[in-house]
Design a binder for these strands. Structure first.
Length: 424
RNA sequence: GGAGAGGUGGCUGAGUGGCCGAAAGCACGUCUUUGCUAAAGACGCGACCGGGUAAAACUGGUCCGCAGGUUCGAAUCCUGUCCUCUCCGCCA
């Protein structure tokens, strides 16, 4: 959510930003309603003040008649206040409703435009491999080594669910362990998070459960939802808290399952493990001061690169264009790994994403910071970044590290964890 | 899941209808005295949203887990709800 005062004093800037983001928002209406709301607020406060005054005077009435008069007056003032307050509240609801649709501001250096305007800003250290045989896709490799059971998954939970089996389980665990240890060594506090979160927390982080296009599974008869990413729970972890400014940045790496309905995704390239309803992810998350967020964002991008370099997977880094940023992100980098078995002769496939959400989530979640000895608080900045989503990372590893006989070389950094240097 | 107790300021903890934004202690800040790996005293010290100011001063409102209700007036009474603790049961 954007600061409404900022919107009121910079309506044209915000409108331009909405345009670049491809978001339709009625900024003029917000400005108008906010003005109205302030008037109602002041009216309600004034009536309340008068009512308080009258209440105070009741005890000092000199006789019963005067007392009765004052009580009646107080009641009337309260009633008037209630009316003004109710009008105010109705306007407030309308404003918040409009405000929720206004996307975050955009980093000045982020490219403008849609998906096709994304800028490739870097390449990984591992070059794209020239195979002297026809590389298989991860499904074929999985079949050869009995790594996945999609039919069983569908029987149990429907299409888009799967069982991992045999070496895939070991690889999945190794990737989790590797990412968590890697980040712990770099100052990220490891946590496991709930896999469910309250609707309010989803809203705070900018996710919109329920509705036709939602990515979110909700639990019937409760206020709970399956999380689409640990970003939701990690952000929510500090909801309503005021953090001592000296302790910033707070950096976490969270391990969670991720659940996505993938509504509206039908038809998109989505063979096998690439687009599924459930996967496991190690996620970085940080609460920072406004001054720190750009640097921490670059740090997260750097860590993602280090991780995928160390896994010997070729990738490119994308600076996402304004129209493709979604609501909360101010700037977003994606790592796209080269997946030799994807499409016809290989394709880039997104494996990580890191966003600087500035104060957009913090405002809704009400996460502030306060410097000791100083007056006032400010909203923190929040950032998130995928360390490793095991499913997609596994696709990249299997497809890039396959050998002519269909065996798969385990990347050096995983060999101890996997307990072997090859699969098959 | 059952029974009970409780949620008050940074912390401990008083407060059962107006004199309570809230005693007292701790912590913290400023000052004074002594003087120096200490101690004593005085004063001050919550947050948030508004108005006001160059900034202050000043000023209105809200907040005692949360949401409702009763009342002219609620930390205090009523209802619901969440959370914490203890005991019992169950369980990975």
């Amino acid at each position: 959510m954007l600061d409404r005062k900022f919107i009121v004093s910079n309506p044209d800037l915000v409108k331009q930003n909405c345009l670049e983001r491809g978001a339709t928002c009625d900024i003029d209406r917000i400005v108008e309603l906010e003005k109205l709301r302030t008037e109602k607020l002041q009216a309600a406060q004034e009536l309340n003040r008068q009512a308080n005054e009258v209440s105070q005077s009741v005890g000092k009435a000199k006789d019963d008649t005067e007392r009765q008069q004052r009580v009646a007056m107080g009641r009337s003032l309260r009633d008037q206040k209630d009316v003004a307050q109710r009008e105010h509240d109705e306007i407030e609801v309308q404003i918040v409703d409009l405000l929720l649709r206004v996307p975050n501001l955009t980093h000045p250096q982020a490219p403008r435009g849609g998906e096709e305007d994304a800028v490739e800003v870097a390449m990984g250290k591992t070059p794209i491999r020239k195979f002297d045989f026809l590389p298989k896709d991860h499904l074929a490799l999985g079949q050869q080594h009995d790594l996945f059971d999609f039919e069983g998954g569908a029987r149990v939970a429907g299409a888009g669910f799967y069982f991992l089996k045999n070496a895939a389980v070991i690889l999945d665990l190794a990737l989790q362990h590797y990412a968590v240890s890697f980040l712990t060594r770099r100052g990220y506090t490891p946590v496991t998070t709930p896999d469910l979160a309250l609707t309010e927390i989803l809203h705070g982080t900018g996710f919109i459960p329920r509705g036709p296009e939602t990515q979110i599974y909700s639990i019937e008869n409760t206020d709970l939802n399956l999380v689409a990413t640990a970003e939701i729970t990690l952000g929510g972890m500090m909801a309503g808290e005021t953090i001592a400014a000296e302790t910033l940045p707070l950096k976490f790496c969270g391990l969670s399952h991720c659940f996505r309905t993938e509504a509206g995704a039908a038809g998109r390239a989505s063979k096998g493990l690439y687009r599924v309803h459930q996967f496991t992810k190690v996620e970085m998350f940080a609460f920072t001061s406004p001054e720190q967020s750009d640097a921490v964002h670059e740090e997260m991008r750097g860590l993602e690169c280090e991780l995928f370099d160390s896994l010997e997977v070729p990738y490119r880094v994308i600076d996402t264009a304004s129209g493709d940023l979604g609501g909360p992100a101010y700037r977003k980098y994606d790592l796209e790994a080269w997946m030799p078995g994807r499409g016809d002769g290989g394709q880039w496939g997104e494996v990580t994403s890191t966003s600087n959400c500035t104060d957009y989530q913090a405002r809704r979640l009400n996460v502030r910071s306060k410097a000791t000895g100083q007056k006032g608080t400010q909203f923190v900045h929040t950032l998130n970044g995928t360390a490793i989503a095991t499913g997609r990372a596994m696709i990249a590893i299997l497809e890039n590290h396959q050998n002519a006989d269909g065996s798969i070389s385990v990347p050096a950094v995983l060999r101890t964890l996997v307990g072997s240097d090859r699969i098959g």
